[in-house]
Design a binder for these strands. Structure first.
Length: 752
RNA sequence: GCUGCUGUAGCUCAGUGGUAGAGCACUUCAUUGGUAAUGAAGAGGUCAUGGGUUCAACCCCCAUCAGCAGCUCCA
């Protein structure tokens, strides 16, 4: 006999081979009816699963629609039901994977005729039929060869491939049958399709087979499912609400920023109100940094290619950069030539074309008189090209050709739009002799960088091609590292706290073992990674390890927050770097007069101003705290008889350092209040007969939820000024809603 | 970059193979109103761009650009 320990502490005996469903029935009929799955020793299993003889004692729980695990089971089963419907409507469909997600599920498929949004209603109708039939999910097992044969027989080639690549190491394969539909699947599943209360097919998108961009692209059908229609409706309503606070929507409505097709994709144009918010944030952090011993610096937006060859940015991350700017107009072409040769993709025909081009440049007379290219004369171009042409023809093999192209390009003057600020800051460090007494040197700059993100990645302010980091580089002795790390982590935490951004997680990002995308010696990496883990552990922070998330020069601690539609974004970052000091040969003089290598910390508490402000817009739903509000108060006159008094109030308040405007349109007061409210002005100051005679304003606080309670009474102007100034200096947070706008957050926020 | 969808007035969106509409916003006039929308009139568009099909294209086809969803990527 097997002993089951139930959640209420009681125990039950069952014979081996008994099913979870039998136990549920023996406990109660209603429980059995409500049962979705069971949990045995922490593992969720089918109700029909038989208890094995071993172990003799297990914990046991019946899961009903009230348990969160059940929803996951339901959604996974829904994926099967959806796949079954698709198979009926699109014969010959290949199935890949169909897992449950935090808010729904998907199934990756490949159908002979592509599915479009227009098919969603048909798919849903077919699913309804399957649900109405309420057929059971039946599990059965096969040996690997038998299972493979079964998949092959069903013409499910992707499943066969998966068995061959992954599953063949297991002793048996499990399948689930639902009517005519059989799917290779680990389970568990709901007892029958009738348990699916409400569902909706949401979207279709491309997804690579096994998440590998080099493999074929399948169609991924997204949907969601719930036990009741009411829950589904609530979820869809939440999605709608979240959309309204999307920073792209609010940014337009509140005139915070714009992106113009003419200025270029991924380029944020800060409008006056957005710029005000950013400027206030910058001032805030700048003041903090000055107190913490940072030195502000300024560096240009472009830098010589050699600088970035030394740092490693240029060679390591070509794909993510704007192409370099060369003085010689031929360089772009030679650069392409070199890249093709490096990637062994230079066809002979193509090579000949390049050579012909070079040769054509070496011929002909030089133009007489004034040259119309001020940066690089034709004479220089011809001489340069001729030198390369001669050398390249001499090259005996690909190696020789590569060398000639490389040497030539290295001799050409070129600039890169800077992808990072560190090399420039390093030059400032190097510009003078550094003693151990000077360290740590902390150089800070709001540095604008440019990265050529793939076009499909761009969106709003959170993923852009030009952005400004609240960057700083700290140069220190090895034994100062710990203290500097701690103080920077505290800075990030302080900022998040002041803004009420409490929904974040911490990740220690380390290198991917065996990957070639990192510079430096493994033992330095080892050391750096260990240091970071030690520091966050010591600070008793919850964190996860992000393998492969490190920067190419070192590991980092990232602070990641969610936007209102549930996507995660890295904001603050603190990075430890033993490599760039080596590459740039940085030194300081120690107390015993030796030349030693400093250590660097790169850190950006906001990450980028663009992304941070984007997240903030969503976090506050556009209603910024008073200290950040672009327009802190707006004077609303009851009629224009009071405009003169209102203007004097406006002047007084502006003189007191508050950002105040006046609405002097000949509109009715209700309309003006409505406009002010929609524009998320924190305070509206109503001015009419009573206020004018009393030297007062009537204060309307827009952060009060109940509209009728917003009128908080009449106060003397001086008192209102005092009140607002206090709120500003306290950086009081008004009206904060959760960053995820109530979206289900079933994932573990932290893992230790 | 890939797959799919979308692009009409400043904004949100209707629309038809026979050269365009609504609401809001804007301008003007009237109204001087006490805590979420006063009324009227007016102005405003090469229907993303470039080709093609057609007697005729905003509509159909192709390409490009951009946006959205997702995948891949993200120093």
């Amino acid at each position: 006999m097997i002993t089951l320990k139930l959640p209420d502490g009681s125990a039950r005996q069952v014979a081996p081979g008994a099913r979870a469903r039998d136990v549920a029935e023996s406990i109660g009929k209603r429980l059995a009816q409500a049962a979705i799955a069971a949990k045995v020793n922490g593992e969720v299993v089918d109700l029909a699963r038989e208890f094995p003889a071993e172990p003799a004692e297990v914990s046991f729980q019946v899961l009903t629609d009230r348990d969160p695990e059940s929803l996951e089971v339901l959604r996974h089963s829904s994926a099967h039901i959806m796949a079954r419907a698709v198979m009926r409507l699109f014969p010959g469909t290949q199935l890949a994977f169909g897992p449950a997600l935090a808010n729904g599920f998907y199934y990756d498929i490949e159908s002979p005729t592509p599915i479009t949004e227009a098919d969603f209603s048909r798919i849903e109708a077919e699913m309804k039929k399957i649900v109405a039939a309420a057929e059971p999910f039946e599990r059965f097992e096969r040996s690997v060869p038998e299972g493979r044969a079964l998949c092959s027989e069903m013409k499910q080639e992707l499943k066969v491939e998966h068995i061959d690549e992954e599953l063949k190491k297991y002793p048996t394969l499990s399948f689930y049958r639902q009517g005519e539909f059989i799917d290779l699947c680990r389970g568990p599943h709901i007892p029958n399709a009738g348990k699916l209360g409400a569902f909706k097919v949401l979207s279709i998108a491309g997804a690579y087979w096994k998440n590998d961009a080099s493999r074929k692209q399948l169609q991924r059908l997204y949907a969601t499912a719930f036990f009741t229609q009411k829950e589904l409706d609530a979820y869809l309503a939440q999605l709608e609400e979240a959309k309204k606070r999307d920073h792209r929507v609010l940014g337009k409505q509140l005139k915070l920023f714009t992106i113009s097709q003419e200025a270029g994709q991924g380029m944020i144009l800060w409008m006056p109100k957005g710029a005000m918010v950013r400027s206030l944030l910058e001032t805030f952090i700048k003041d903090e940094l000055m107190q913490r011993g940072y030195s502000p610096v300024y560096t240009p937006h472009i830098g010589r290619l050699d600088l970035y060859r030394t740092s490693g940015h240029f060679p390591y991350y070509r794909d993510a950069q704007y192409p370099p700017v060369y003085m010689n107009p031929m360089c772009q072409t030679i650069d392409t030539w070199l890249t093709l040769l490096e990637k062994k993709k230079l066809m002979q025909e193509r090579e000949q074309a390049f050579l012909n081009l070079l040769e054509s440049f070496t011929k002909g007379e030089l133009p007489e008189g004034e040259d119309d290219n001020a940066q690089y004369t034709w004479g220089q171009v011809v001489l340069d090209v001729r030198a390369l042409w001669l050398e390249y023809r001499e090259a005996k093999d690909d190696e020789g050709k590569l060398t000639s192209l490389r040497n030539w390009l290295h001799g050409q003057e070129g600039y890169l739009l800077k992808p990072m600020n560190c090399p420039h800051h390093i030059q400032i460090y190097k510009a003078q002799q550094r003693s151990y007494r000077d360290l740590p040197v902390r150089l800070a700059e709001f540095g604008t960088v440019y990265r050529f993100e793939q076009s499909g990645e761009l969106g709003g302010m959170t993923r852009v091609r030009g952005f400004t980091q609240d960057d700083a580089h700290l140069f220190m002795t090895p034994d100062q590292v710990h203290e500097e790390l701690v103080s920077n982590i505290e800075l990030v935490l302080m900022i998040l706290k002041i803004l009420g951004l409490n929904d974040y997680r911490v990740r220690v990002s380390v290198r991917e073992p065996g990957s070639s995308k990192y510079v430096g010696e493994p033992d330095l990496w080892e050391k750096a990674e260990k240091t970071l883990v030690d520091v966050v552990s010591q600070l008793k922070m919850n964190f996860s390890i992000g393998v492969g998330e490190a920067a190419f020069y070192g590991p980092k601690i990232d602070f990641i927050v969610k936007d209102c539609i549930g996507r995660e974004w890295q904001l603050g970052t603190v990075q430890l770097d033993y490599n760039l000091p080596n590459r740039f040969d940085l030194e300081y003089t120690s107390s015993d007069n030796r030349r030693l290598r400093p250590v660097m910390i790169h850190r950006a508490p906001f990450g980028s101003m663009e992304r941070f402000c984007g997240i903030l817009i969503e976090h506050f739903a556009g209603a910024f705290p008073l200290w950040l509000a672009p327009e802190q108060a707006r004077i609303v006159t009851v009629s224009d008889k009071f405009n003169d008094y209102a203007k004097s109030v406006e002047k007084t308040m502006k003189a007191a350092g508050l950002r105040v405007t006046g609405d002097y349109r000949p509109e009715k007061i209700g309309a003006k209040i409505r406009d002010g409210s929609l524009e998320k002005v924190p305070y509206l100051l109503i001015v009419g007969e009573k206020e004018q005679s009393a030297g007062a304003v009537s204060l309307r606080d827009e952060s009060i939820k109940e509209m009728k309670a917003r009128d908080v009474g009449s106060f003397p102007v001086a008192e209102v000024i005092e009140r607002l100034r206090t709120e500003v200096s306290e950086k009081r947070i008004r009206n904060v809603s959760t960053a995820s706008a109530g979206l289900a957050d079933t994932e573990e926020k932290y893992s230790a």
